[in-house]
């Protein structure tokens, strides 16, 4: 269950940033933080990595979004164990 802190950079030629912001606020998995006319901080909290990716793509495709930067990634404690943990290890 990943939690990520992202920074959205807005396209400076786009005039309807407020509309994009309200769509972001309407999405339950997203919490909107500090914003100015150029950038906006959000936190994405989703039940699975697949959902996280979906949200990420959705944000990326929103009108006026020029780019997303990752500020923080938090991972769940009980993540799927890595398959490579079965090794030649000795006890």
């Amino acid at each position: 269950m990943p939690i990520s802190g992202l920074v959205i950079t807005f396209d400076q030629t786009f005039d309807h940033i407020d509309e994009t912001l309200s769509r972001l606020r309407a999405e339950p998995a997203i919490e909107v933080g500090a914003c100015d006319r150029q950038q906006c901080a959000i936190v994405v909290d989703t039940p699975s990595q697949a959902d996280d990716k979906k949200i990420y793509q959705w944000v990326q495709d929103l009108p006026g979004v020029a780019g997303i930067q990752v500020a923080f990634v938090g991972f769940d404690d009980d993540a799927t164990p890595d398959s490579s943990s079965t090794t030649d290890s000795v006890d």
Partner: peptide, 23 residues
Amino acid sequence: RKPTLNRRDLLQGRLWKLMRPSE
């Protein structure tokens, strides 16, 4: 291009791929 993640990256926690070098 905008950075993208494929499924394998996500599973392996390669979220840092999304970061630009400056970050």
